[in-house]
């Protein structure tokens, strides 16, 4: 399923979506960036409450399909621009990491 279809199905708020047609193949939940680096797979929807610059770098390096910021976390304008420039899809949701993870899993 594409990132855009996933976002629509889960009513995620798009913060930036430079690559709406990326395929979502799996999911990963984590906030410790080194742990995410070691374990998230290419094509995953990465669910996290972290929203600093390094999140964009980790998303680029792990080649995840999108980042879903849970628990109402969002990105400031500068970070949105950075994510856009690096081709990283980022969404926000009020749901908890667990709740959104369960919904992503049910859809895949």
């Amino acid at each position: 399923m594409t990132v855009q279809a996933l976002a629509e199905a889960l009513c995620l708020t798009p913060l930036c979506m430079p690559e709406p047609d990326r395929e979502v193949e799996g999911g990963y939940i984590g906030d410790l960036l080194s742990w995410v680096m070691g374990n998230a797979q290419s094509g995953d929807a990465w669910i996290t409450i972290m929203s600093n610059d390094n999140v964009v770098a980790v998303a680029v390096l792990t080649d995840v399909a999108c980042v879903i910021l849970s628990e109402g976390v969002t990105l400031d304008g500068r970070l949105r621009e950075l994510a856009e420039k690096k081709g990283i899809n980022v969404f926000s949701t009020e749901l908890s990491s667990f709740a959104v993870g369960a919904k992503v899993a049910a859809l895949l």
């Binding site: 906030d31 410790l32 972290m50």
Partner: peptide, 16 residues
């Protein structure tokens, strides 16, 4: 608080 300091840096480097 920035998401680092998990003590996984060098182990990840070795693993990969």
């Amino acid at each position: 608080t920035m998401g680092f300091g998990a003590g996984m840096g060098l182990p990840n480097m070795k693993r990969y």
